Simulated assay, not measured.
Amino acid sequence: MATLIAFHEVEDGDHWAEAWHGGAGSRQEMFGQIGATARIFRDPERPNLTGVLLEVPDVDRFQAFMATDEVAQAMKEDRLKVETVRVLSEVAP
């Protein structure tokens, strides 16, 4: 299991966060398709600065998933500023 942190800016932090709340069609459900779990975060002083802590069972599958049209459409719907996306992977001791 790999731990990843993705952070990025969005146009509307409230709109972005709503997409992650569980249930049918949520981003939780979407990432669950590849066995990933996610916890979401927002900067309290800059609510359009957002992040996701991901537990990913297969990094190669995650990377392939991130390159799909489904994910590109979700980022567009969530008003994510794609050029700001950064992903960090945990460095094991």
Rank of each mutant, 00 (worst) to 15 (best):
A2H: 15
A2Y: 15
A2G: 10
T3W: 12
L4S: 05
L4Y: 14
L4E: 10
I5C: 11
I5E: 01
I5V: 15
A6Q: 12
A6P: 08
A6H: 09
F7E: 14
F7V: 04
H8F: 13
H8M: 12
H8K: 08
H8D: 05
H8S: 08
E9Q: 13
E9Y: 06
V10W: 10
V10I: 06
V10Q: 04
E11Q: 09
D12W: 03
G13F: 02
D14V: 06
D14M: 05
H15Q: 11
W16Y: 10
W16C: 02
W16Q: 05
A17C: 00
A17H: 04
A17M: 04
E18D: 12
A19K: 09
A19T: 06
A19D: 00
A19P: 00
W20G: 02
G23Y: 12
A24C: 05
G25R: 05
S26M: 14
S26W: 10
S26L: 13
R27E: 14
R27K: 13
Q28M: 09
Q28E: 11
E29F: 04
E29K: 07
E29S: 07
M30R: 10
M30P: 02
F31Q: 00
F31M: 07
F31V: 04
G32I: 09
Q33Y: 02
Q33V: 00
Q33P: 03
G35L: 01
A36W: 06
A36T: 13
A36M: 06
A36F: 00
T37H: 03
T37Q: 10
A38R: 07
A38C: 10
R39G: 04
R39K: 13
R39T: 12
I40S: 09
I40C: 04
I40H: 07
I40V: 07
F41D: 05
F41T: 03
F41A: 09
F41Q: 04
R42F: 06
R42P: 00
D43H: 07
